[in-house]
Nucleic acid binder design. Structure first.
Lengths: 327, 327
DNA sequence: TTTTCTTAGGTAACCGGTTACACAACCAGT
DNA sequence: ACTGGTTGTGTAACCGGTTACCTAAGAAAA
């Protein structure tokens, strides 16, 4: 590797000390106009770029944040990651990507690595981390999409309200028997969405617990769940899936079973991922402001890092129903 | 921020010098069994984790690689990113994610940032970088999906061959008039795929240049292109789209125009992104080994970084046709 | 004129590791 | 006994920045 120009080279060129160069660089302390000119010119000439690593070592901060997600291949996360990276870059930070598969050991491992690299803060979207684990880190954390514990800055969406909206919408569309494909038990947002559904239908004479089936937020489990559901309850004419991927699974299953969408059966999802616009029929869904989520989280994290005031450390963002052709 | 334990603390605890601790840490140089034991115990007790930043500064390497992609939201890249991150983590590296939108300034900016952070190597998927720009970096680079110039390690797939396979497959399926929605002009893989198509159909009596229409690898442009195409040439009964996203656009367009797929018109894509399995009908496509691509690139990059021997610096990975229901 | 404040800029310690070098102890070979 | 190689360990320089501290000059205040 070719040696990079260091602050010493610049200092020598400009005929000043390294301290002066550093002062120019950071716009801090007293520097005469003439010295500043000379330094700036030398920086130009040598194409000098300060070494961030050396800077990090002294300042104990690295202008880097960690982004911990279960799996970037899950269609919810690319948009989130993009938002985080966009805002981070704007504010002068880089982002290190970590996929944990919701695996406790991997999570702890990445936490250690990020800490060793002096990252300034971390954005997590995970439900296996404990509050204790997080407090031990002593650096700012923002939790996205899942509430870990009070006191930890969190950004979520109105899961329950969205679920109610979705379910009511199906009712308004004259669906008589509405089922729900829920997400994994114990995952906060899956639980909340299920609760929202229940609140709307539990009073209905036709409602039965077996209208709620389990999925794991993925397509395969949803196809199987829907197959079973429609065989057991052929009367079902509306399905609210706890996320878009499962809604697409439901569409495929219904299609296989010869049901027409939306004529025979209406299907609504949750998330508003890009995929929901790519299907035929296009999916009606509760769209989350995913980009906004990432944006807000990053802005907040950087504020926390830079000790700027933050108004709130808990945001619940609004969701909105987008009607397309599956209902 | 709470002060972290440093090597000095460990040395003091163990009653040895920092040099000895460092030797234990790196398994380098002579250390007596008794000293090693004491040091290891102190490390345990204090839960000491070496500061990677300090290490980076001295070693001029950071155990970090950069991953530069146009846009992680483009469905091709999450799987690639996942592969890169998986392998990198396995080999002890972290990955910094950069989205450039194929924008020259952003690319140069990220290159600068990555260099300042002493990343050990970079994986790029981009076509605006010049060979010169890359050589100036003086660190290992691997180019994915796009060939920048000879001499720069590259991993691509058999674009032309895949395109030929796709086109021939449509012919074998009794399509009489096959059109092509190509990717942006000047983008290597788009050009190669178009060439592959041409080689198969240019000898056909029915072939005309206007059967090739332009898209930008995105859905919107493809929908518009297909609309125009099918209006102008209603006789078309087969479409080879240069990527899956555009194939899906073509499906949607055909659907809107009342054509049945695959009865009236067969559609085949290229890439094999997750989305291609989510549509109704599921997309027949030329699948690229995306994960394999990322894996190979990362393995090679780390070999280059660690100066281990690499057999080849140019790989052209095989693609395979996966028949589903759109043909 | 002396004191004090502001401006300017250099020297060197420091961040937390790694490693060249020095030195000592011990063993083997002559 | 002398030489030389191997082993074990500490001291201090170094990586490339930042900044506390010091000195000094000129301006303003006493």
């Amino acid at each position: 590797m070719k040696k990079l120009v260091s602050i010493k080279d610049v200092a020598k060129q400009a005929g000043v000390s390294v301290a002066t160069v550093s002062r120019v660089l950071n716009n801090k302390g007293y520097v005469s106009e003439s010295a500043r000119k000379k330094v700036e010119q030398s920086i130009q000439e040598l194409n000098y770029k300060p070494n961030e690593v050396a800077r990090s070592l002294f300042k104990k901060q690295s202008k880097t944040i960690g982004l911990i997600v279960p799996d970037i291949m899950n269609p919810f996360f690319p948009e989130l990651a993009r938002a985080v990276e966009d805002i981070a870059a704007e504010l002068g930070y880089s982002v290190i990507l970590c996929n944990t598969d919701e695996n406790k050991e991997k999570e702890q491992h990445y936490l250690d690595v990020l800490l060793q690299k002096y990252v300034d803060g971390i954005i997590v979207s995970s439900n296996t981390l404990s509050a204790e684990q997080i407090h031990k880190l002593h650096i700012p954390i923002v939790s996205i999409d899942r509430e870990i514990s009070q006191g930890i800055p969190t950004i979520v969406v109105e899961n329950k309200k969205g679920a109610q909206t979705a379910t009511r919408f199906l009712k308004d569309k004259e669906c008589k028997k509405i089922a729900h494909i829920r997400g994994p038990l114990g995952v906060t947002n899956a639980d909340e969405r299920c609760e929202g559904y229940k609140e709307v239908v539990s009073g209905e004479p036709w409602f039965r617990e077996s209208y709620i089936v389990n999925g794991y937020f993925d397509m395969q489990s949803s196809i199987e769940a829907t197959n079973k559901l429609l065989r057991l309850h052929p009367e079902i004419d509306g399905i609210f899936a706890a996320n878009d991927t499962m809604a697409i699974g439901a569409i495929k299953s219904a299609h296989q079973l010869g049901r027409k969408i939306p004529e025979d059966i209406a299907i609504i999802g949750f998330d508003g991922i890009a995929l929901s616009k790519a299907t035929v029929p296009e999916l009606t869904t509760i769209v989350q402001p995913i980009y906004e989520l990432g944006k807000k989280a990053t802005t907040m994290l950087v504020h926390l890092i830079e000790k700027k005031p933050v108004e709130k450390t808990f945001y619940e963002l609004e969701v909105r129903l987008v009607e397309r052709h599956s209902t």
